[in-house]
């Protein structure tokens, strides 16, 4: 029996194997880009339904960034908004028959976490300078330097594992139920999977915002302090599986 955690290439482009998550990501990229072009081609001061809904999503992203970072959301809007939209659509794509979400594979989640990891360093250095950013690892004491470095890495891994585990488990559960109970029984679980997908997208985006905000505000590898920004859910896994 083949392990579901192993992905087989669909085809190769030269030496590069093209797997199913890559193709799914390309489809999502094409859909989002086409939607964006079609939407922004006819933007109006009096928005239509689709424009108003999209502006509402963008406004919600801006609001979350502002609440968490206490800063202008413009420099972070594209990163956080793209992460949120991609994860959300990728998670919900599992509702389509035969489509396996890209986020159910650890390579996609790792790519997302890698981007967040680089963004944390990038925004931290841009905000505090290289020396300031490095000094933030010695807060509150130099003894904490190893722990802060480890935390910097482990929280990135936590992002990967959290998203991967939730989405993959949802796909597995629905697959198992489908193989056992037929057509209508998995529907409640699919609805729950939609909720889980939305929550995971929100958690991943908000944690990325928190980590970037902490780096920008000079809090090094530490978690965001109380009062500086709202605390993210302490145990997102339990919340998403409730």
């Amino acid at each position: 029996m083949k392990s579901p955690l192993v992905i087989e290439p669909l085809f190769h482009i030269g030496p590069v194997p093209i797997t199913q998550p890559v193709v799914a990501t390309w489809v999502i990229m094409a859909a989002l880009t086409l939607f964006s072009i079609l939407l922004t081609r006819r933007l109006a001061l009096r928005p239509g339904t689709v424009q108003a809904a999209t502006e509402m999503v963008t406004g919600a992203v801006d609001s979350q960034i502002t609440d968490v970072m206490q800063a202008d959301p413009a420099p972070y809007r594209a990163l956080i908004g793209t992460i949120f939209l991609f994860i959300l659509i990728s998670n919900w794509s599992s509702l389509l028959p035969g489509v396996e979400p890209a986020t159910a594979h650890i390579e996609t989640d790792a790519a997302l976490a890698l981007i967040v990891f680089v963004a944390i360093i990038w925004y931290g250095i841009r905000s505090q300078g290289l020396g300031g950013y490095l000094r933030s690892f010695a807060e509150p004491s130099w003894i904490m330097i190893p722990l802060n470095i480890v935390e910097q890495i482990t929280r990135t891994f936590s992002l990967i594992v959290r998203l991967f585990g939730n989405v993959m488990s949802g796909v597995f559960v629905i697959g198992i139920i489908l193989s056992l109970a037929g057509l209508l029984v998995p529907i409640p679980l699919m609805a729950l999977d939609m909720l889980t997908g939305a929550v995971q997208a929100y958690i991943f985006a908000i944690l990325a915002t928190v980590f970037i905000g902490a780096a920008v505000n000079g809090e090094g590898g530490g978690e965001n302090p109380a009062g500086a920004a709202p605390q993210p859910p302490t145990d997102p896994d339990q919340e998403s599986k409730a």
Binding site: M29, T40, L43, T58, G81, A111
Partner: peptide
């Protein structure tokens, strides 16, 4: 796949920033 997904996500980040978030923010 990890490398391709990273590149894909960076491209998607640029595309959405160029064609979605910037025009929406402008409007």
């Amino acid at each position: 796949t990890l490398g391709l997904q990273t590149v894909n996500l960076l491209v998607l980040l640029w595309l959405l920033g160029r064609f979605l978030f910037r025009p929406l923010a402008a409007i």
